[in-house]
Amino acid sequence: MEHYNMNLTLKVWRQKNSNDKGGLETYQVKNISSEMSFLEMFDVLNEQLISEDKDPIAFDHDCREGICGMCSMYINGRPHGPWHATTTCQLHMRAFKDGDTIVVEPWRAKAFPVIKDLVVDRAAFDRIIQAGGYVSVNTGVTVDANATPIPKSDADKSFAAAACIGCGACVAACKNSSAMLFVSAKVSQFALLPQGQAERESRVLDMVAQMDKEGFGSCTNTGACEAECPKEISLENIARLNREFAAASLSSEE
């Protein structure tokens, strides 16, 4: 693969804290290698800002291998940028060319308030999990792991749903800021497994109720979430969530 260097114009959202109004600021970076990751390009910019006695840009990141779900940049109008099924940390600069202008904003959603610059608060996702995203089993269970065979196709589908990294790109991509893809992935993971059956109905009702309470919008089936999801979580999960929710609502005694 040919390597090349590029000069870029960056327009980055700067916001001191959650009360600040914030706005885009323009920066120039030079000699960026096509081999760098997008976040390494931000490292270069931040080192530059520090050397100029300016405040570096705050952004969330940790594993830098696409699995922790911490990184969260809205790049040129797309969560995690132009590459399909890729987190910001795995996006590499060969996606861009010399002279490009790149606009970088935080996730935008009422339920994800900005903390500083590109860093947002996603604690709402933890609270949705707290509402029911688990199997109620204490440590110490003695049932052998192979006691219940699970059809491979169910296990595979459950795994595909469980691959969600909780980054929030689905919310950021959605014009309604809906968290349906996130919630449906967790509901599906358990609905497909025998271990999840005991709490199947209460789980979906409680998680959806918490999602609504957090201020996420409704789902209007535009599919933007699936298109932008770095882990390719399927819209089928939303369909399953809707079925699970309807069935649970009908049979609910309350």
């Binding site: 440590t139 792991a145 192979n146 065979p149 296990a155 459950s158 271990q195």
Partner: peptide
């Protein structure tokens, strides 16, 4: 051995063979 039992009980989707076993 207890860890695997515990994780399966929690709904951790480990890889399985066609017969449904781990």
């Amino acid at each position: 051995v207890n860890i695997i039992d515990q994780c399966v009980a929690q709904g951790v989707p480990f890889a399985r063979e066609y017969g449904g076993y781990l």
